[in-house]
Write a protein that binds this DNA or RNA. Structure first.
Lengths: 292, 292
DNA sequence: CGTCACCATACCGAGCCGGTATCGATCGAA
DNA sequence: TTCGATCGATACCGGCTCGGTATGGTGACG
């Protein structure tokens, strides 16, 4: 009947004296919090807050509950921490597609380490062959990677969307163009991705209509860039990709942005994985919205 | 994540060392409890029980959790009790159709008083006009009554089913019959129920095909019985109805049993109402199944 | 080697949670 | 007084959990 979640909500509202602000602090929206407080009041058969124009204020019964709820929640947290400490550190294996980890993992890792210091994180970096970054193979628990890939049994949350561009040498006639359309380009020699690469992924990242390319297959982003530099191949990359001197990225207007995601198995994901996903989403949401 | 319900389940299992027995103690079935324990273990990232052939036994982590969980739950209960005490006694108005309260309310009241001593119960007895016993009019929170009635917006739980019989004087030719079929009876003068009576209810309780009767309308069971005794009317009653000397009840074979129910509004019912319904159902289940 | 006693798993209907969209009320300012 | 702003409340929707029934898997024991 009375559960810890509602008590946490209640404490937040009591301290903020404002349902909207409390909702923001709890990272939910106002209506569910409003409803949760109503339910708690119904459960206890007591009005906990007076609704006043500027927000809410505790009733007498609310004050009594607040006095106890704080210590109750603290005790619950201590209990949980004690059990987690007894069972030893949990481990989480994070997959990372090529260089995506560089882009986001730092920020996420900091937040995750702060919130879940008891978890030891292993990182498994995979090459361009597998955009699921080891998820499909069961090598990792959760992955930081890019869409699109065949998502059979996988779920994802978009952390950041970045337009893609064509990687060319700075002496390429296209280099001076402010933007290009892939549809307008004459045939080019696209980099080849290894056989067995996810076809959806391959189709997205190579401009060739059949998703096929030329030359030796490239297994890393760096290899692709070097192929452009040395062999005059063409490649696509996110606009924020750091490229060696001598290369430029020309925005491509007729291809949807590349979405950087955190992905996890749809079924059987542990609470630890969910926690990681939530922290990643939250960390990047703040960053994405320019500091909330 | 970790909520009080799962902790209560965990404590029950830890003390019973047996999921099945713990489920019985918690008044749920074994599979949901089994699943809840698994979820709790996943949430905490710790195995809490060893599964052994005779049941389960606590792991080291489980023992640590058990040590804290007891006091945590006790503190939660104390907190809740404190708030309830501060807000004063809650009141629950129970509707009762005519004499149904006599049949069941005693047993239910005892159980309810024991489990919810803080609630003051008011009883509102209604006449045969309204089989919803005041629910439809909003006069009561919950009702003990009999089916059938038009149940728009009402829900119910059957406490007991009792065959119905024909009430006749002991000098009536039918009095000696072991049973009768309403379909075989010649026309009789059935008691009249007041205008405005729920039509479904009226059709059930009077043998007249159109659900109509003769004479002055009867508002109570006693009036109906007196009408049979003095005016030779016919009436239907549950077989266990206590009748004055000079009347007998002949079982009727072609009418479904009368179902004694606890009924409540489908929408907006308070936790207190749900609690009453649960207690009533449980009390009567035990009685109905002859002492479980 | 069958049977029994456990727990685990697979489904299903009901309710809760969190989301978006919108309403209602109150207060301050033009 | 009316308009806008700012609260909380309400209505609806998709997803998840819960508790139920039915059934499977696996050891112990005669």
């Amino acid at each position: 009947m009375v559960d810890l979640r509602k008590l946490r909500y209640f404490v937040a509202v009591a301290e903020e004296r404002h349902i909207g602000r409390a909702a923001a602090r709890l990272h939910i929206t106002q209506p569910p919090l409003s409803r949760a407080i109503h339910r708690l009041e119904a459960d206890l058969g007591a009005a906990l807050f007076h609704r006043i124009p500027s927000g809410v204020e505790l009733t007498e019964a609310g004050a009594i509950l607040y006095a106890d709820a704080r210590s109750l929640l603290e005790q619950a947290d201590r209990t949980e921490a004690r059990v987690r400490a007894a069972v030893g550190p949990a481990t989480l294996t994070v997959g990372s597609l090529a260089d995506t980890a560089e882009l986001v993992a730092g920020r996420i890792a900091a937040a995750f380490r702060r919130l879940r210091p008891d978890v030891s994180v292993h990182v498994h970096e995979s090459d361009l062959t597998d955009p699921s970054a080891g998820l499909r193979a069961g090598l990792v628990d959760v992955a930081l990677t890019r869409l699109p890939f065949q998502d059979a049994g996988l779920r994802n949350h978009v952390l950041h969307a970045e337009p893609v561009g064509l990687v060319v040498r700075d002496d390429d006639p296209l280099a001076a163009r402010p933007a290009v359309q892939l549809a307008d380009l004459p045939d080019r020699r696209w980099v080849q991705l290894p056989t067995g690469t996810d076809p959806v992924w391959r189709a997205y990242w190579t401009g060739a209509p059949d998703g096929d390319g030329h030359g030796a297959p490239m297994r890393t982003v760096q290899e692709c860039l070097q192929a452009v530099l040395w062999s005059g191949m063409s490649a696509l990359a996110p606009l924020d990709q750091v490229v060696p001197a001598g290369l430029v990225i020309v925005p491509v207007t007729d291809r949807p942005p590349s979405r950087l995601v955190v992905a996890w198995p749809a079924a059987g994901s542990s609470p630890l994985v969910r926690s990681f996903v939530r922290i990643a989403a939250e960390t990047y949401r703040r960053a994405g919205t320019r500091g909330d």
